[in-house]
Amino acid sequence: MMEELSLHIMDVLQNSLAAGARKVELEIEEDMDGDRLRIKVRDNGKGMTPEELKRVWDPFYTTKRDIGVGLGIPMFKWVAEHCDGSFRMESHPGEGTMLEAEMRLGHIDRPPMGDLAGTVLAMVVSSPQVRFVLRYKSRKGDFFFDSQEVREILGDVPLSNAEVIKFLKEYLSENLAKVMEAA
């Protein structure tokens, strides 16, 4: 149903927004030597009680009327576990939620990362009030992006301005292309 890891990531980031997060951190690490791929998201949203967290694994559970919502996490978990990996979530009410998916980088069924730049661009431009921090690590280097830096520079110029979109799109895709080694 989701053919790219960057779409699973988008879904997770969306959950963070739905939880009222003001800051969302995404960390992706390609470990070529160890043949692992790690994806970590941490937010400062409203968090979940252990009871609520348990229900997140249930594909038929949703707090909303949107039928698709409850499926996002179980799908991502399935992908990670199917690719010789693991998936875990920690959450504390009032503090936020942490999610970590880890899988074998070279697994034949591992979905491609896909358009990660597109995911980040869509999130940053459409939710300017939320601070997005991205760190992508690989053998080729580190790429660090903090939407707050962009926000501070822009001042009252909106993120969804034509020139800003153009700049961010190129900036994100060029810099990610430089560090992304695995497809």
Binding site: L7, D11, D66, V69, G118, A122
Partner: peptide, 12 residues
């Protein structure tokens, strides 16, 4: 941009 939107192409 809920899950049901994302799976049918909301990001695109």
């Amino acid at each position: 941009m809920g899950t049901s939107g994302i799976v049918v192409g909301a990001r695109e």
